[in-house]
Simulated scan of single mutants.
Amino acid sequence: MKFTDPIYKAIHIQDTKILDLINTNAFRRLSSIKQQGNTYFLHPSAVHTRFGHSLGVYELMNKVINHLTSIGDIRISEHDKKVATVAALLHDIGHGPFSHCFQKISGEDHGEWTIKIIEEDEQIRGILNRIPNLLEDVVKVLKGEGEFQVIEEIMYSWLGIDQLDYWNRDLYYSSLQLEPVSIDNLILTLRFVDDRLVMEEEGIPYIEHLVKVKKNLYDTGFGHPFVVGKDLLLREIFRIMQEEKIPFVTSDLKVFFNKQEGERLLIDFLILNDETIYNEIKILSMNKDTEAAALAHLYLSSSSSLQWMEGKPLNAKMNREDVSILDVIIEKKNYSSYTGGIFVQKDDGLYDIMHSSNYIREIASLPLKEHIYFLEKDRITIKK
């Protein structure tokens, strides 16, 4: 079967079990979960989904395994290759509405939901159990237990396929005028040395460009204060609704949030998607003279978000009697910069890429940005 993809042009899948997994309700649901959550408020085209990303990671797993096998750096059994491709396909199946934003709202990690779905969903469990030990081994990879070190390195290291796919994918759907990273050429420079995914020196320019893409996407996209403000607004709306016992209109949300963490069933979670949340906020905004409705209006606005300023709260020039500070967010350097972990192979050993790249060394040394997010009390009063 052929899937048209903007990054890889075409993804051809002949493995019937992979196709069966793609056709499960739990996986199809990912087509209703935005990859970048609220980023679309700033970049209207950023409505790509976890479905496309998951197919992309599957495609890259095959590409990297084939490359490393062809140059003799790894030997992998048919079973382990199956484990690798299934883990790549299902690695994000536990994401909730608006991706990472929902974790803060629900208090439950998407990784834990991923394992729960794989182990408990009847369709997925039934497909994986056709091959002995496949389900158990996929779970081991996704938990990062270390038994499948080669697969885990390919998946999750700094050079891992999860990152290689989503940076190029996020760039494609952004408004940035930057060249994409040449993934196929980058893959050709990868090596597996001393149980670690590393790269040859020829690959350094690709990583420099990747770091440039990362920084620009973070600064002007999901890390931009406007988008972070939308995340915080959504979180604050749900906090107020639960604290003040404002009833959910949507029955699916009512069922989910009326249960405590750990009590929620798979069916309670899998029914939720971006539209569920958006429709609830839209209905809430129609109520009059309530704090939650005012916040909902602000959240739905295409031109307004939370107010913010750069700096630390103690140094901020603001009248504390006039504002309510909702949060202080420090830049996530692992998304915006380079924090170490890419090793370059040279004749005399392995070295961190910072030793060979002035650009990456400069980017990594930049100070972290800190933003204060607040509301003016005379505009919207937030009860604490």
Results as ranks from 00 to 15, higher is better:
Val328Gln: 08
His91Asp: 02
Leu295Trp: 03
Thr85Asn: 07
Asn62Ala: 06
Met199Arg: 00
Leu90Trp: 05
Ser285Met: 07
Lys212Gln: 12
Met354Leu: 11
Phe374Ser: 11
Leu265Pro: 00
Lys332Tyr: 03
Thr85Ala: 01
Leu188Asp: 10
Phe3Tyr: 15
Phe3Ile: 15
Gly223Val: 08
Gln345Val: 04
Ser45Trp: 11
Leu128Ile: 10
Glu243Gln: 10
His110Arg: 02
Lys369Ser: 13
His95Ser: 10
Ile124Asp: 00
Met199Phe: 04
Arg125Thr: 12
Arg379Ala: 06
Tyr335Ser: 10
Ile329Arg: 07
Glu202Asn: 12
Ser336Thr: 07
Asn358Thr: 14
Ser175His: 08
Phe51Ser: 00
Leu60Ser: 12
His79Pro: 02
Met61Gln: 10
His95Ala: 06
Gly37Leu: 11
Arg239Thr: 05
His110Trp: 08
Leu55Met: 09
Phe98Ile: 09
His209Leu: 13
Glu236Cys: 06
Ile183Ser: 12
Ile360Asp: 03
Met1Pro: 12
Ile187Val: 14
Trp167Asp: 00
Glu119Pro: 00
Leu272Thr: 01
Ile246Gln: 01
Phe98Ala: 07
Glu362Thr: 14
Leu89Gln: 08
Met354Asp: 06
Tyr58Met: 07
Gly223Cys: 09
Pro180Gly: 09
Leu265Tyr: 03
Arg264Pro: 05
Lys140Asn: 11
Leu270Ala: 01
Ser45Arg: 15
Trp167Met: 11
Phe374Lys: 11
Leu266Cys: 00
Thr189Arg: 07
Glu136Ser: 14
Gly37Ser: 15
Gly223Met: 08
Asp194Ser: 14
Ala364Pro: 04
Glu236Arg: 15
Ser45Asn: 14
Lys116Met: 04
Tyr299Ala: 06
Ala84Ile: 11
Gly262Thr: 10
Lys230Met: 04
Met199Thr: 05
Val141Gly: 07
Asp194Phe: 02
Val83Gln: 03
Asn38Thr: 08
Lys212Asp: 10
Tyr172Cys: 00
Thr381Val: 12
Leu217Gln: 14
Lys377Ala: 05
Asp348Val: 01
Leu300Tyr: 04
Glu244Lys: 15
Ile74Cys: 09
Glu153His: 01
Pro44Gly: 01
Ile154Pro: 07
Phe222Asn: 14
Leu128Phe: 08
Ser305Cys: 05
Thr290Met: 07
Leu197Ala: 09
Leu272Cys: 04
Pro132Asn: 13
Ala46Pro: 01
Ile353Arg: 02
Ser304Gln: 14
Ile246Val: 14
Tyr173Thr: 02
Asp274Leu: 08
Arg235Gly: 09
Ile118Asp: 01
His371Ile: 00
Pro247Arg: 06
Phe238Arg: 04
Leu60Asn: 10
Phe269Glu: 03
Pro225Ser: 09
Thr276Arg: 02
Leu55Val: 07
Asn66Gly: 05
Asp268Pro: 03
Asp184Thr: 11
Lys288Arg: 12
Ala292Pro: 02
Leu232Glu: 13
Ser365Arg: 14
Leu366Asp: 05
Tyr58Lys: 09
Leu42Asp: 00
Pro6Ala: 02
Tyr373Ile: 07
Gly349Arg: 11
Leu233Tyr: 06
Leu265Arg: 15
Asn358Asp: 13
Lys312Asp: 13
Ile325Lys: 10
Ser336Asn: 09
Leu90Gln: 00
Val138Met: 09
Leu253Ile: 02
Phe269Arg: 01
Ala364Trp: 04
Ile382His: 03
Arg320Ile: 00
Tyr299Gly: 05
Asp268Thr: 01
Leu210Pro: 06
Glu78Thr: 12
Trp113Phe: 13
Ile93Glu: 01
Met309Gly: 13
Ile18Cys: 02
Leu366Ile: 04
Gly144Asp: 03
